[in-house]
Design a protein around this nucleic acid. Structure first.
Lengths: 243, 243
DNA sequence: GAGTGGTCTAGACCACGGT
DNA sequence: CCGTGGTCTAGACCACTCA
């Protein structure tokens, strides 16, 4: 049940968060941690790999593992996040207004690209408000194969919660593209755009744990409210893969 | 020298690329691969972890490792990439025009946030053109501590190549934020913006392998030419860390 | 040379998916 | 039940940093 390296990683992350290990400090060495937690060194290494992946520490060969400047830790890295999750973190007043909820098919440009055989989907168009200001227009195509029915109540709250908690669907990864495009007249009105007709468009293809395509989302953001934060390790250097 | 799990990962990546293992196929099981490559299973697992991280395969417990739809593989994931590298990949005609090259200090908002002690830097402002169209205005602050001198010739070609290849600096990770903001009159002119005054602003803080801050970059992109692609695994579920 | 992280092994047991 | 991937161990040797 309890996975050791995750527990250890969580424990260390906690200590970093509470500055028991402060930014710039070195963590105890791997053999030392191995003794402290009474596990093998490989298990410690898995825990540290988690922390490095999360951007909390930096491993330096021959020296040790340094805690990275914690000033950044507060804001999110590039994850797959739902609107609902975002707002819980940020403690803001969020609201959702359903504009449309019908049956539809996944747009051909997408189904063609993915060679989909099943394209029957539920289409949901929603306006998202934060602190009573319209921020985002979300359009979702959700494959009926996995979610036969979506009620207005479910669309009103968190679809992700419904998918994962109630239906037991396991979302695993997504590809996103971010572009800036002119908005349609209706979206301009919905987002109450005044000085511009441009919106930030985030298109996501979401996949389940078994690699099957599941959902296509188009999010149109008010440009003045949009912010995307990314934490990226450099790859394709000496050891990286050639893709 | 030769690191087995990287070699194996590269070999498998190659076979996936050449469709020796096609999208939807399962790779041989870990014990099988272990025999094929004559290495221990943990080594195979490290190689597969690399491939999963790169988005080439998906591991499914109890079933195997599936090759993910290769339609996506062509375009880049969220890496740290330089303008120069981008253009080599895309086979486009790229040019750089230096607008300014002077000594300066890292802006206070940044140095304060990072608690920097050394702020002496070289400031470079460059206009990037692709196929003779102005696309991006880049501003860089590069710490003198690591790069004392930058010549116009170096600023004209790839700074990254100069840093990594000639100076031996090892760039490790970066944090980026993407926002949309009104441009100054000079940038509007440089990017030849007509229908809008908005630009996409990508701010990057770049760090070296030893975790020291190294470079601050502000890239202002023409909104109609901007595209950002991201591949993200979902985190913070059952096993994820609490940050 | 002592101490650090990086790689690798040959086993073991567990959790999960199918049959 | 069997085969899959997931975790874990107790060792080993190597590459790197620094005194």
């Amino acid at each position: 049940m309890a996975v050791k390296y995750i527990q250890i990683a969580a424990d260390l992350a906690n200590k970093i968060k509470h500055e028991q290990y402060a930014a710039g400090d070195f963590l105890p060495s791997e053999p030392t941690l191995s003794q402290l937690y009474n596990v093998s060194r490989e298990t410690i290494r898995k825990a540290l790999t988690e922390l490095a992946g999360a951007g909390l520490i930096q491993k330096i060969q021959g020296k040790g593992s340094v805690v990275i400047n914690a000033a950044r830790i507060a804001f999110p890295v590039s994850n797959i996040e739902s609107f609902d999750e975002l707002n819980k973190q940020k403690q803001m007043h969020a609201a959702t207004k359903i504009i449309e909820l019908t049956d539809a098919r996944v747009p051909f440009t997408i189904s063609k690209h993915l060679s989909l055989t099943e394209t029957a989907a539920t289409y949901v168009k929603r306006l998202r408000l934060i602190n009573h200001e319209p921020i985002v227009v979300d359009e979702d195509y959700i494959l009926k194969k996995y979610v036969p029915q979506i009620s207005p109540q479910q669309a009103q709250s968190s679809l992700y919660h419904y998918f994962e908690h109630d239906l037991g669907l396991e979302i695993d990864y997504a590809t996103k593209t971010i572009t800036v495009e002119p908005a349609s007249a209706s979206v301009i009105k919905q987002l109450q755009l005044t000085n511009t007709n441009l919106v930030v468009v985030v298109r996501s293809l979401t996949y389940l744990k078994d690699t099957s395509f599941f959902q296509y989302t188009i999010s149109q953001h008010r440009p003045d409210k949009f912010k995307f934060v990314d934490f990226a390790h450099r790859k394709n250097k000496n050891g990286g893969l050639i893709l």
